[in-house]
Design a protein around this nucleic acid. Structure first.
Lengths: 134, 134
DNA sequence: GCATTCAGATTACAAACGTAATCGTTGAAC
DNA sequence: GTTCAACGATTACGTTTGTAATCTGAATGC
């Protein structure tokens, strides 16, 4: 029972969530709590996974302190312990840090060049900026 | 001489560049061509790596088609085969895809919330948007 | 009560990654 | 010519990740 580090549940900077794990988190962010079977129903199709795979990912996420379990009869209900917004926030920041020296503007520039910006996006961003300046 | 897949040199979507590898790429994007020793001089300090580590990373990047080598006497000069802008572009897109359903605006919103946007950034983004609309 | 089934837990295993030591070769110094 | 140092190449090895099979214990049907 080697009492691992645990804690760090809310800090997104905690144990890194892998790509596959992220898919599971998304399912639970969309709706929680859910059982393993329910999560599988959502992701197994999309990613071509089998039940055991989802179980493994869920367990790892619990170990990492990203999910909480609450017993429901003989199975578990899983609930995110870290907020999606926190995760998304740190992930975004990481990227901006790594690729753009922490400046967000060049990111936007790149998205623009790569046609990753729709007209709607542009409009919305302008709204956001207006908000920010108020 | 098992002629691997190779090719896919310019497609950033090729073999994924890992985090450690990325550090090496940055050094070469900053200045190229460079020898292994020169690259090490730049990154070994920052990341606490030793020469062999850099050599390994360089080799893997060559295997992945991300770097080209040109012999210079008895050593190699390494040059990026994929452009930084391409790499940065796909990486950004990946993130936006994964976390924001492909929409860039929510990304910006998050950066804003997390104080990741400086006043300068905002100004610059506005300039960019103005450009885009022209 | 006993077999079946269905959860989670444990174990597995290959690929990728991070980090590096060692090997083999070859030019350079003497 | 022989030794040495400096390269790249090969090998190594623990960890993380992706993906899953198997085990174990308990609820459930009969």
């Amino acid at each position: 029972m080697t009492a691992r580090v645990e804690s760090d549940a809310n800090q997104t900077g905690a144990d890194r969530i892998s790509d596959a794990e992220h898919a599971v988190m998304e399912a639970l962010w969309a709706k929680s709590p859910q059982t393993a079977a329910e999560v599988c129903e959502e992701v197994c199709g999309q990613r071509g996974w089998s039940m055991p795979t989802v179980k493994t990912l869920l367990s790892r996420l619990v170990q990492k302190g990203a999910l909480a379990t609450q017993p429901d009869g003989r199975r578990f209900l899983y609930t995110p312990l870290i907020a999606r917004s926190a995760y998304v926030g740190t992930e975004s920041k990481r990227l901006v840090e790594r690729l753009f020296g922490g400046r967000a503007a060049p990111l936007l520039a790149h998205l623009a060049e790569n046609e990753a910006l729709t007209a709607d996006d542009i409009a919305e961003i302008e709204r956001l900026l207006a908000e920010l300046k108020k």
